[in-house]
């Protein structure tokens, strides 16, 4: 049986892991390679680098970073942020990423998902969706959650998968950074609507929230960031709780 995954996300800018609230007041958290290796040792099932750089110069730094990480990290590495074309995806994969997440570019031109899936396989194409509650549904936003679109999140997730995405990374903008738990309703709605793995993101404040995202939310994987970097909990503590709850979890002891 497939185990549920715990994915650690590192926000990267200018070759360093940074942390801030809504990309403001950024502070340095550490070296991405060292942090990725530490989380692998602690039992993380995957690592994601989210590039929050503003410039192309910084993006080149990211590819170099991916290269140095892939040489030492022996769990899957996903890279996201600023990916626009199939060529961008190709460069990230060549540098050593196993998967690439695509967000705003897919909204602007959904064909890019198909192009990537045909060239590199659906298993490395992650559709990243940022959604905000809007009436009885959820509206897709782009550009780090700042720009609303015409798209409804559940329908958009279905379309992304139909176009070739092999996974959906689903972030609740409302919950992001709030540490009061994932948007379980949103997660459940998308998980029920698509046949590919859904990664719950945005809002985890403790291990219990992760458990709820995987059980009530129906997600295959949960993405965590700040609560680990801040030392509020550990990979081991989260996985212990998940295992005690009867979820299939990869053991690393």
């Amino acid at each position: 049986m497939l185990t549920r995954r715990l994915i650690v996300c590192l926000d990267v800018k200018g070759g360093r892991v940074v942390k801030g609230v809504r990309f403001e007041g950024l502070r340095d958290v550490g070296d991405p390679v060292e942090l990725a290796l530490r989380y692998e040792q602690e039992g993380a099932d995957e690592v994601t680098f989210l590039d929050i750089s503003a410039s192309n110069e910084e993006r080149d730094t990211l590819l170099d970073l991916v290269r140095r990480t892939a040489e030492r990290l022996f769990i899957p590495l996903t890279v996201g942020g600023g990916v626009r074309t199939a060529d961008d995806v190709g460069r990230a994969l060549r540098a050593g990423a196993d998967k690439v997440s695509i967000n705003s570019a897919a909204v602007a031109r959904p064909e890019v998902l198909t192009e990537c899936a045909e060239r590199f396989g659906a298993q490395c194409v992650v559709a990243s969706i940022d959604a905000r509650k809007d009436g009885s549904g959820w509206r897709v936003h782009t550009h780090g959650g700042r720009k609303p679109t015409e798209l409804e999140a559940v329908a958009w997730a279905r379309e992304c998968v139909a176009r070739g995405a092999g996974e959906v990374l689903l972030t609740s903008i409302d919950q992001d950074g709030a540490r009061s738990g994932y948007d379980l309703e949103l997660t459940r709605a998308v998980a029920d609507a698509v046949d590919v793995p859904v990664i719950a993101s945005g809002g985890a404040g403790n291990a219990e929230h992760v458990r709820e995202g995987l059980t009530r939310g129906g997600a295959d994987a949960a993405l965590v960031a700040g609560i680990l970097h801040d030392g509020l909990t550990t990979v081991g503590a989260i996985k212990s709780l998940l295992r005690e709850s009867g979820l299939p979890i990869r053991s690393t002891t």
Binding site: L2, D45, Q123, E167, D195, V196, A221
Partner: peptide, 9 residues
């Protein structure tokens, strides 16, 4: 139902 299989098994 879930294809691709992505994850630890």
């Amino acid at each position: 139902r879930r294809v691709p299989q992505i994850g630890w098994n």
